[in-house]
Design a binder for these strands. Structure first.
Lengths: 231, 231
DNA sequence: CCGCGACTTTGCTGAGGGGCAAACAAGCGG
DNA sequence: CCGCTTGTTTGCCCCTCAGCAAAGTCGCGG
């Protein structure tokens, strides 16, 4: 088995500030895995036996309820840790993580978690902070759902994605993840029909430019205005 | 200054399993505070310099956005820790905690957090788990908002409150917190008008019995049916 | 190069529920 | 015990948006 180079994880905030030896130690317990587009790292309800770090690509995390309704919880970006169910005391994964594009991840067995945070306490602090940030985000989303209408919510979601996964092009900011109308609907609590209608209207006004699973933001200002205060 | 007795915090899950000496040590750095009904432990946006443990009473945590829209984030029960902004790397409190009834809390300066988790690592683990549970809860709430209609959401909220703060009476399960229509509206993303109409309809059907800031669940089964599947 | 499946668009309809307005309790302080 | 503040109820209107239906399109796999 070829050794993994420590540069793989040096960029992850969770491991920031650790010594090269520590990184090597951490890496020595990791397993690398390829996740071709469409494949899942784990599924909701499965026993949570490993945790992960995304090296490359993007994952989509979804959550489904008893009635079969689904939401898109978040996109995972490179250097994000995910599936840390053990840390939060969950025995099963609370969602499903699917590769939105061909991706590459490291994974560790759950048993490594306890050892690692004992050896590197900063890891626990970082994990808690990222959990806290996600809690804030999720609470903001509740506030958004409770107080904004659909058009405002879609605008907010698109702007957020543009910030998280935007790539500048000559036409505007391209959201660099395959993003269907259905995805946007599951992010905003709308139907794909309404999302489609809304994007069409925006396209007519020159705010965005979109195609099959593709959205380009042309007028960030305009969208921000809609997100804040639908006139 | 009178010493605080360790029995005060022995019941808190965060401190479960610690030795009496540890509890005394932790208590020695704490300050006790009375929170008469209506008073706040902290307000959203204030610099977060202390964290808390509720000893007695109930607190209501609210969060408000730039436009002035407000949601009720959660109720804090005795033995819950709250305001642990430092642990999650927040410099200001992300919400406002107000006493819903006369309450009693302990508080520690932020500086104590680092010392405490270093001395008692189980505290960090517990904190992470409770944070994880809250994240799960909040994500469920997003799913709820995105996929259920208002009546289902109100039913869900009432049932949850009955479980968290219910007290059996001869008429049914009384929710033992002053709970206005407005509160329920802020929990479910509805208007107080709609909440009022819904409760009136339920009262007519004998599902609940309610008055000023008071709700009694008479037919838990019936409410559960509504929450799951509005016919 | 064709066919099929996945994704998107658009029209129509109706109901859920928000906004507004006003009347109505129920405590609380004086 | 009265008046006022705070919380609640209810009616009416109208708009947003989901539901249903059906017709495109794009692109991949054979």
């Amino acid at each position: 088995m070829s050794r993994l180079d420590r540069s793989l994880i040096a960029g992850a905030p969770a491991f920031a500030g650790l010594s090269p030896e520590a990184l090597d130690d951490i890496l020595s317990r990791a397993q690398i895995m390829r996740l071709p587009k469409g494949e899942t790292a784990f599924r909701q309800g499965e026993p949570a036996d490993r945790f992960f770090l995304l090296l490359h690509g993007r994952l989509r995390v979804t959550r489904i309820n008893a009635e079969g309704a689904q939401i898109l919880v978040r996109f995972i970006a490179p250097n994000d840790m995910f599936g840390v169910a053990m840390a939060i005391g969950a025995v099963t994964y609370p969602g499903t993580a699917t590769a939105a594009v061909d991706s590459l991840a490291l994974s560790w067995p759950n048993a490594a978690w306890t050892n690692l945070i004992a050896a590197y306490p900063s890891l626990a602090v970082k994990a808690m902070q990222s959990l806290g940030a996600r809690l804030q985000d999720t609470q903001d989303r509740v506030l958004d759902l409770a107080t904004h209408n659909v058009e405002q919510r879609i605008a907010g979601a698109v702007l957020k994605l543009a910030r998280q996964a935007g790539r500048k092009t000559e036409e505007g900011v391209l959201i660099d993840i395959p993003l269907s109308r259905q995805d946007l609907a599951e992010m905003t609590g709308a139907t794909l029909h309404t999302v489609s209608r809304t994007l069409s209207a925006w396209e007519a006004k020159g705010l965005v430019d979109c195609g099959r699973r593709r959205v380009v933001v042309r007028d960030e200002q305009g969208l921000t205005a809609i997100a804040k205060h639908a006139e």
